[in-house]
């Protein structure tokens, strides 16, 4: 009653610790669980064909089964994970390097910035026929597309970081006669680190999206292709199992990387 009569607008009030008798985070779980139960009941009710939807419990049990399938683990999962790691590493290294060069050189900055700004307006996956023509259907076009897709978000975040180093710190560097490499290692990189980390988290998400989507459209194997093949063969159980697997996998990968990177972020200390 008291809270309702508050004159403080609701958008500046802190989130209440408990809502309707439950701790706030518990409601998140309740909502997701409710959605899962609703789909489960709907699928079991017979109102929908098994070709369109299967119960969530079957999706989950099948995707757990997939983990015991050697072909799936080695041929699809491991391959996709390696592709994601390769693209992510390439875009992380190249992204930070490009941003550094842009921050250092006005000319490079002017030349590259417009492309960075409009990059995501480009439907990059439309390039896949070109990739197939040039590089075939192996791993090269997948890594290329995924790296290209995720490098830009890394560049723009790292650039924000490099450019937000306070001018007073730059003067300090000048007065201490720091060399370029000292400035990079001891001032620019640590100063930009929180923004670079934010870019890397997004970079991983983009790399996962790009690898799976590219596999979906042009590969002969991999996680994305597992889902695609099941879909084309009307194998609804495997299709949903693959979707659940991929979603959980991407979520866990992002959470794990986020937690690992946050340990380096001095703004969170």
């Amino acid at each position: 009653m008291k809270a309702r009569s508050s004159v403080v607008p609701s958008y500046v009030r802190p989130t209440p610790r408990r809502v309707a008798g439950l701790p706030s985070p518990a409601w998140t779980v309740v909502l997701v669980a409710g959605l899962v139960v609703a789909i489960e009941l709907y699928a079991r009710s017979g109102a929908v064909s098994r070709l369109d939807l299967i119960p969530v419990s079957e999706m989950v049990s099948r995707s757990v089964e997939l983990l015991g399938d050697r072909d799936f683990v080695v041929g699809a999962l491991l391959r996709s994970v390696l592709l994601i790691c390769a693209s992510f590493t390439a875009s992380a290294v190249a992204g930070v390097a490009v941003a550094y060069v842009m921050a250092r050189s006005r000319w490079v900055h002017r030349a590259v910035k417009p492309y960075v700004n409009v990059f995501y307006a480009l439907p990059i996956f439309a390039l896949y026929p070109v990739m197939v023509v040039m590089f075939g259907t192996g791993v090269v076009p997948i890594i290329l597309l995924a790296t290209l897709f995720s490098v830009v978000i890394v560049i723009s975040n790292a650039l924000v970081g490099f450019e937000s180093a306070p001018p007073i710190v730059t003067k300090l560097a000048l007065s201490l006669e720091m060399s370029r490499s000292q400035q990079l290692r001891k001032i620019l990189l640590p100063s930009a680190l929180p923004d670079i980390l934010a870019g890397l988290k997004l970079g991983l998400a983009y790399a996962i999206i790009a690898v799976l989507a590219t596999e979906f459209i042009l590969a002969t194997t991999g996680l994305g292709q597992v889902v695609n093949r099941a879909y084309n063969n009307f194998n609804t159980v495997d299709m949903y199992a693959g979707i659940v697997f991929v979603s959980v996998f991407a979520l866990l990968a992002n959470l794990a990387l986020g937690a690992a990177l946050n340990a380096f972020d001095w703004r969170r200390r």
Binding site: I168, V169, S175, L176, K186, P190, W266
Partner: peptide, 27 residues
């Protein structure tokens, strides 16, 4: 020659002791 700037030019990612040691580290 040591310069003390107007705003505090401390490095927010370093502890007090590492900030003070910064100039020595650079050298």
């Amino acid at each position: 020659t040591a310069i003390v700037f107007q705003e505090s030019a401390t490095l927010p990612w370093r502890t007090v002791v590492d900030n003070v040691a910064f100039a020595l580290e650079v050298r």
